[in-house]
Design a binder for these strands. Sequence first.
RNA 1: GCCAGCGUAGCUCAGUGGUAGAGCAGUGUCUUCAUAAGGCAUUUGUCGCAAGUCCGAUCCUUGCCGCUGGCACCA
Length: 516
Amino acid sequence: MNDTFYVTCAIPYVNAAPHIGHALEFVQGDVIARYHALLGKETLLLSGGDENALKNVQAAEKAGIPVQQFIDENNVKFFELTKSLGCRFDVWQKGSDQAHHFPASQKLWELCDKAGDIYKKSYEGLYCVGCETFYTPDELDEKGECFEHPGKKLETVKEENYFFKLSKYQNQIIDLITSGKLVIVPDTRRNEVLSFLKQPLQDISISRSNARAKNWGVPVPNDNTQRMYVWFDALNIYQSGVGFGWDDTQYKKWWPADVHVIGKGISRFHAVYWPAFLLSAGLPTPKAIFVHGYFTVNGQKMSKTLGNVIDPLTLIGKYGADALRYYFLREIPSSADGDFSETRFKELYNADLANGLGNLVARVLQMIQKYCDGKIPDIDQDPDTHPLRADQTFYNWKKSWKDLDTYTTAFQFHDALAAVWKFIKVADKYVDDNKPWELVKTDPKAVDWVLYGLADSIHQVAWQIAPYLPETSRKIATAFGATGLSKDQPIYKDSWTNLKPGTKIVLIPPLFPRLP
RNA sequence: GCCAGCGUAGCUCAGUGGUAGAGCAGUGUCUUCAUAAGGCAUUUGUCGCAAGUCCGAUCCUUGCCGCUGGCACCA
């Protein structure tokens, strides 16, 4: 019944260049989508651009370019990054898209309005003319002035805005989370949200005056003096990208999202505001929110002022997309903060990718080349009885499949990959225990059996890592002539086909050349 | 300040009421199919500090120290 799976990544804010934090999130989303595709589901992976904030207008003015151009130029960098990372995004929904996103957001607004949850209220705040922004007192220095414009007095400005009755949905949201209808992973984030929900919720403003918004953003329906404020329309990208308000069939097919992948800084918007908007509009709420942590760099917080922002493209150029993906997914606990260090990166690369997977593939290919005439060996016995597949006394690949599945569906990517690499160690040991280079002198038939099992194992490993390291998976498939896996969208069921004896193997260059 | 969590081998972390484990790094050794790769063996720990409960605590309780995160209009 549930044959679709819809994954979203947060839409990046386009003011700065992409950093490894964005890359991490894209890769995680991609793995989730690819894994469910492997299970045979039709999947959709979405992200896009958060483009309607006033800061964009200001930044564009500063740069002296039209807002739309500024936004497009910046946003495309993020999309290019996803491609460089080997991520497969199906929809890239921009917030400035007037054809789909505007009507979708206006529809959401109207539904909430019809439910009686939007009302007008005047908002009074301290406004800095220099920044063109409202500040709360705690955001200002001791003199009550903003840090950007010292000496400039802030004005008290009154503005009438639309508000959303967030308070009305407090109990429903608590129910949603405690009942498990809205799953929040990991528990620490879930607990944070629930503890936040113990306080009475305040209604939130969801519009800005046209003047202050500089005519940028989604117009509020039936009121040409106001534009929607970011909270409201940005979250709705998840719906506007899949047809909401412009293609009902599409929308019904994909919504609600199976999981929103987000960073910890925006969990409240996704776990509280977003479900509230949807409840108000009478629409289904997302099923799960997976919250990842932030990167530190060599133990320090990543920040522009420290100048330690890491450019993922540099790393991809140096080491390849799959190597970076591996570091993200294996080294960073998927739900906690992680550290990025190039030293550690190289260590992990050499230990797991070069010496582990890469070397195993190389040695098995060479042995088949030398001892089996370069062909997948022919065997007399049932492959299902091969120890690497069936021996219960050690960690065979059926066990690693099971663990991989458990951990991947729980968003524990590091544990999932650990399971695969645990099996790789088993395969390496199996080579040493059976010594095909000696066996070939006494019992060639036994060598065929040993090497068939190893080829079969690597074939399975290639399937297992397909969502994680898609490029490497495909390279292995090519080497072993595994056609099912070479497809653009391989389906898990096909993995159970055995390698065909007699297939000519292809000697490939090292998957991951060892780093000095 | 309030709330939550953490503090275990050089590093990253797992773990149990009966005085500890994995991976990586290090060291030794075997081996050659392989990317000077692989197998095997192996060193190091007052399990943050102190007190309490218990026959017995690293795992339970309390206090302290240190670190991290959350505490609303900040994507």
